[in-house]
Write a protein that binds this DNA or RNA. Structure first.
Lengths: 240, 240
DNA sequence: CCGCATTTGTCCGTATGTATA
DNA sequence: CTATACATACGGACAAATGCG
């Protein structure tokens, strides 16, 4: 097998590594990639010379951060290092603090707007016709659903994913998607949806601005998109 | 005590909530705040009617996200909902992918620069004399240390914390601090420090720009601050 | 479709280490 | 220093899920 393990002691006077850190070291030293199989819990228990309980508790920590992915009855694998942990943490923070202060949700919206606006010049420059067409049809679907009084979370999420996909910065795309999820989740807790038609139309306006070729217009369109959302937030602050 | 628990079954046809979710519900329903004490593991074991092993594994998940904080031999408390989980996750991603591609570190630096520049107008407008003086003395300390060939991580981190503290957006401050930590950690793995004096001086230039009162100059100074960092990254890409 | 081996999920009992009062 | 409450750790047993012959 020739699996490599870090030296058990390197006598540098440090305290011994935690089980979590030793498992992380294992992944790093063996240069595993997301999806690669990990040793079974019993193997880890033997090789690290700790009980299976401890291995399992360490695995819980690691899977919460998507460093490993555990499949019941099948095995454990290196995780995809996604930001699901951040999403859970922020969502809970929103739930816990939303009725005390609105700072969190306001900060979140500001951050979404800010990051999308940052890429406006690049988006105007790079956006290809296929992506634009996909965004247009999503916007049309949103308007249709809004006319029926229905919400359109899936379309909205995908629209914003496409919008920032041109940035070339994968980290920003993942972060914005997390922020969308958290915003959507917290927003559901402050009452039934409002501004449906207005928000749906705002997405058409964003594509219009892109087609105009002016970064300034795109920035303005993005700002207008977030206005009804801020308005809804301000109103909810009074009724709570 | 009159602690409230969510109804064990709400017969809406959903699958039963996980232990993790039931503990989260407990915190929400009882409106606990960070620092408030949680029931002991034995109490939770009794009240949720599951074994202590499961409680402990759930606690590991929750503490990884800083939703609870466990103090050995003392008790468990509601966590501070910090972003330590994100820091760990991103740090590991950096370790795992840094020798394959440099996109991650590049994206991280771009994001740091972008977010700091976003607040440049506000910073120029709001920064008070006390904060400015603190930043100036930090910059001086950095130059001194650089002259001795020593690094200055603590000073650098605090400088950037102060820089964005004027934004009024706590979330951005926390995110940037996480990015600083991750960047610092990954940067250590690509070799001994370089550009010490240049980087230290760049911080003086940032305060100079703030004092000039021009947001444009501040933006330029921030960009210049990140240049040697990008240069170091590009050089390391070849030697790996 | 069935049975089997593998692997993770859950539970219990007990002993140990640690912090607080 | 002692006592108590609490989290940490261990080992074993059985249940549940998955994949495969």
């Amino acid at each position: 097998m020739a699996t490599q393990w870090p030296a058990p002691d390197d006598r540098t006077g440090r305290e011994p590594l935690s089980v979590v850190d030793r498992i992380k070291q294992y992944i790093l030293v063996n240069r595993l990639s997301p999806g690669d199989p990990m040793p079974t819990e019993n193997e880890l228990s033997d090789q690290l010379a700790v009980s299976r309980s401890r291995i399992r508790e360490a695995m819980k920590t690691l899977s919460a951060l998507d460093i490993v992915e555990v499949r019941h009855g099948y095995g454990t694998f290196v995780g995809t290092l996604s930001l699901t942990g951040l999403a859970e943490s922020l969502a809970f923070r929103g739930m816990l603090t939303s009725h005390r202060d609105k700072h969190f949700l306001a900060d979140l919206i500001d951050l979404r707007e800010l990051l999308e606006i940052d890429w406006a010049p690049l988006i105007v420059e790079r956006l290809d016709v296929d992506t634009r067409a996909a965004m247009r049809s999503l916007a049309t679907a949103m308007v249709d659903l809004a006319a029926q009084g229905r919400e359109f979370p899936a379309e909205d999420r995908q629209f914003h994913q496409l919008l920032v996909s041109m940035s070339g910065n994968a980290l920003v795309g993942q972060l914005l998607d997390v922020f969308w999820q958290v915003h959507s989740l917290v927003d559901d807790t402050i009452g039934p949806p409002t501004h449906l038609e207005e928000t749906a139309q705002a997405h058409h306006a964003i594509i219009d601005a892109i087609e105009s070729g002016s970064p300034g217009e795109l920035e303005a369109a993005i700002r207008r998109h977030y206005e009804p959302i801020r308005d809804r937030m301000r109103r909810s602050a009074g009724t709570d």
